[in-house]
Structures are given as C-alpha cells and as structure tokens.
Design a protein around this nucleic acid. Structure first.
Length: 462
RNA sequence: GACCCUAUGGUCUAGCGGUUAGGACACUACCCUUUCACGGUAGUAGCCCGGGUUCGAUUCCCGGUAGGGUCGCCA
C-alpha cells in the first residue's frame, strides 16, 4: 500500500517553526517513499478561523517549497481543492463527524453526558507503537483513573480535536502520522478510537520538538517562533529548510549542507532523533551564508535590492550595470540580507555581514563618517589623504589594479604603512571600517564619487 | 500530583561493548589580506550522577537528577 501522510495545522494566524519542520518531515517522507502528501486544515475552532490565517499556512508552505498532493489551493474554503478525499477543511466535514459519532454511540462506545458526547475509553494501559521512540506503554494518569472517558463532541455540537483528527486520518486513508512529540501520550486516545471504529490505525512517528536557545518551550510569543519572521528577514528558504532538517535528523557522513534531492533519498523515519533540539541562530547564519554563495548573482541582486529598499535606499536611478557591479563585490561576504531582531546573535559585539553594510554606500549621495571614526582617523591622515587624492586624480585608468598600485606607491613615497592610507580611504568612501575589497569598491564607485568623498573627508579632518 | 519521552563539548550532531570519542556552528590564537568576510592551520571545550551486567562500558539494565511533553467541552 502506498504511503499517505498529512500535515494538519490549525489556522491560528501563524506557522510555528516547529510546525514547519513537521511539515517538512512529512513532505520528505512522502517524497522518499513516492507517497502522497496531504494538507488538511484543522479549523474546528471556528472562533479564530479566518481565510487569512489559512493563507499564512499555505504561503509558508509554498515559501519552503513544500508542495502538497491533496488539500486546499487557497485560503478560501469555498474555492476548489485538489485530491479526492476532500473537503480538506474540517469545518466542512461536520456531516461526516456526526455520522461517525452516531456510529460510536450505536456501538455503545460513546454516550451523552451533560449535553456532550463522551468516548468510553478503555481502563487498561495502551501500548503505542512508535517508529521513532519504539513501543511506549502508556499507563493511566491519576486523573484518568478517576475518569478515563473524554469528550469527543462538545455540548455546543462541535467535535473536538482527538475525534476529528482520528476520523479524518481514517477517512483520508492516512498510513503514517508524523507529528510533534507533544502528541505522543494522547496517541493512546487515538488508538482507542481507531479500535472502536474497527479500523487498523496508521503508523505513528513522533518527532522531537524545537526549543528556545535556553531550552524552554518555544511558544507563540517567543522570538523566532514564527516562520514569517524568517521570511520577512529575507532568509533564503533553502537555508531554512536545510537548517530545519538538521534538527533531529542527520544525513551522516559529516555533512551539513545537503541538496534536497539527496535528503529525500536519505531521509527515513527510524533515524529521527528522539531528543529535543534548541534553535541556534548562529548556525542558521552560517547555513544561509553557504546558500548565499551558491545562489546566482541575479537572485542575489534581487534580494539585495529588497534589503536596501527596506532600509529606505532606492537603486532605481542607477544604471543596471553599476548596480550589478556594486552587488557583486559583496556576494561572497554577505551572510544575511537584513540585520533584524530575529537574526540577532547572542554576541552583541559581533555584527552579521548584511547587504546594507556591503553595499548601501554605492547608492547614497554621500556617506556620513561616524564621529567616533573620524576622531580616530584625524591628524596625519589629512596629509596622507591629500597625497592619495592627488595620486588617484592623476590615474589615466581608474580600475582596481591601478588604484592598488597608486595607493601602494603613496604609502611608499610617504614612508608610512599601507594601512594608514587604506583605512581612512575606506572610511571616506564607505563610512565604515568593514566592507568589500577596497580597490574593487573604488573601481565600482568610479573616480568622481571617490574624489568627492575623499575631499569631503579631508575637509572634516582637523 | 500522575503518566510519558529524552540525556555525547555552549549549540546541532556521528557513534550503536574495546575509538587518541569524529564533524559542523560558535569561541580563541596564528597565517593570508588594506579591513571585515572567505580560505588555511592550531587550540579551548563533551559522553549528567550512582549502582549493576561484562574481561571491558559513552554504548546494555536499574535508580536518581535534570530538561521536555501530556493528563481541557484548546488544537
């Protein structure tokens, strides 16, 4: 029988990073086995359901590149969906649930209690066979000893999660349930439900959770808990995917950056780790930078433009070849496109290499030299910078090699270390002490801009 | 309170009775470079604790501890 897996999120208005990984693992398993990946919207809690909330899930999945074989095609429940086991919105399956609860009542497996319908849960321990954890023998908790039965239909006529989840997995012929470990102990209820329906349950694989860097549970309010934050931070989706599959699973062989098609071949359920993992933004930076280096210059430019626009810098008035040359000088160095809160490292002193740092000065009419920086770079710099300026002005060809040679000659003629020329020149041109290769950056800026900026710098020197 | 899962450097992990416990991120030096980054070299740092089993435990078993999860007319 062919594998059918599903991702069944509740439309709460955001997609949890852990949920994204659950979706990814389901998707990987479907691809690995040549099975079917179903997307089902668990929107029984009608109070907080909106089309927008569903749309957030769908767009997040698309951003990650996790296509589904069956499920909704838009957040609009009335729009068409793909697959023959629909509808894929639980809010549209109420007739089915009513029929199924009737079945249980008729069998004597469920009964009415204070307006609600309760399931007659077995009183003995249940063994939960799990593909990741192994067989788990679940004893009743003290509260369950008192009353093991649980509500499957609320008194307001709405079915509850445990019930709809099981009915849908059953009706949609799901063969493998891959979900967060937070559902592990509740699986006893689900198993009992399947048994009551007289149906063979699916196989279960409970995957570990993603924790905050400090090891606490990553809840909705925590920084970095929502996939949307990484999307808006202009992280590369392939980097996020790569980071995510490395959490709780390993391709072995001391490899970290692995193409997805290879991950699909290697991925399987039994090798999934059993312990929770903490989210480490530094590792994400590194993986992102690896993919930045792999991406095409064209796509890099596109991301860079978006990042600069976010900083209020427009490249619209610049020549495309200038823009391309400018961004090219940062391609190998940029780690992230934006320096935003969600990407901030624990190490406050350290800054991450962003597009802004490596390219904003190309598109600003002039750069502001930080007061602290000019304080450090005053005094003798004036004389050195005047010499550098004259040398640059004399060049017949203004390119990186020529600038390189000229600058070295200036240092030699003045009898100073090259750094004394280079540092202030960089600050004059970019306003910073870090950035792309100086000579290349100057070539791209062009003689006119360079001389203007040096003049302005000299004027500021005491 | 009860029940369940888990435990290799700061973090992610490889390991599956005998290893100098491997890799990556981060960190620290040094090299390269005009700086940052990249690259290269070196380094700091680990099997939670206590009992067993065994000739021998990071690896198997038990207990403890710690972390996480669950016990809802939330999902």
């Amino acid at each position: 029988m062919s594998v059918r897996v599903r991702f069944a999120p509740s439309p709460t208005g955001f997609l949890h990073i852990g949920g994204a990984r659950t979706a990814l693992f389901n998707w990987l398993y479907a691809k690995h086995t040549g099975g079917t990946f179903v997307l089902r919207i668990e929107d029984t809690d009608t109070a907080r359901n909106t089309q927008e909330a569903v749309e957030i899930i769908l767009s997040g999945m698309r951003w990650l590149g996790l296509d589904w074989d069956e499920g909704p095609t838009s957040g609009d429940g009335k729009a068409s969906s793909k697959g023959s086991y629909g509808p894929y919105f639980q809010s549209q399956r109420s007739d089915l649930y009513k029929k199924r609860v009737r079945e249980l009542i008729d069998k004597g497996a469920a009964y009415e209690h204070e307006g609600a319908i309760k399931f007659r849960m077995q009183r003995e321990p249940i063994v939960i066979p799990d593909l990741v954890v192994g067989d788990v023998r679940r004893e009743l908790t003290d509260r369950e000893q008192l009353d093991p039965d649980f509500v499957i239909f609320r008194s307001d006529g709405q079915p509850v999660f445990h019930f709809v989840n099981v009915v849908d997995d059953l009706e949609m012929k799901i063969t493998h349930v891959i979900r967060g470990e937070d559902h592990l102990t509740n699986t006893a209820k689900h198993l009992a439900l399947f048994k009551a329906f007289g149906v063979e349950p699916p196989k279960y694989a409970h995957i570990p959770l993603i924790l905050n860097p400090d090891g606490t549970k990553m809840s909705k309010r925590d920084r970095g808990a929502s996939l949307r934050e990484y999307i808006e931070a202009l992280c590369l989706p392939e980097a996020v995917v790569n980071y995510l599959f490395l959490l709780g699973w390993s391709p072995k062989g001391d490899r970290e950056i692995v193409p997805l098609d290879e991950v699909i071949k290697l991925f399987d359920l039994p090798q999934i780790l059993r312990h929770n993992a903490r989210f480490d933004v530094d590792k994400l930076h590194w993986i992102n930078s690896e993919y930045v280096r792999l991406m095409s210059q064209e796509r890099f430019n596109d991301y860079s433009v978006r990042a600069l626009e976010r900083a209020g810098i427009s490249i619209r008035s610049f020549d495309p070849s200038y823009v391309n040359a400018a961004f090219s000088t940062g391609k190998e160095k940029v780690k992230q496109f934006l320096d935003v809160d969600v990407l901030r490292t624990k190490n406050e002193k350290k800054h991450i290499a962003t597009t802004k740092v490596f390219s904003d000065f190309y598109f600003l009419p002039q750069v502001e030299v930080d007061a602290e920086l000019s304080k450090e770079l005053n005094g003798t710099n004036k004389r050195i910078m005047q010499a550098e300026r004259e040398a640059l002005a004399r060049l017949t060809t203004f390119n990186a090699d020529a600038v390189d040679a000229a600058t070295k000659k200036v240092a030699a003629d003045l009898g100073v270390k090259i750094g004394l020329v280079v540092h202030p020149t960089r600050v004059a041109c970019t306003g910073r002490t870090v950035g792309p290769s100086l000579y290349h950056l100057m070539e791209v800026l062009g003689r006119q801009r360079v001389l203007e900026r040096i003049d302005r710098f000299i004027a500021q020197c005491v």
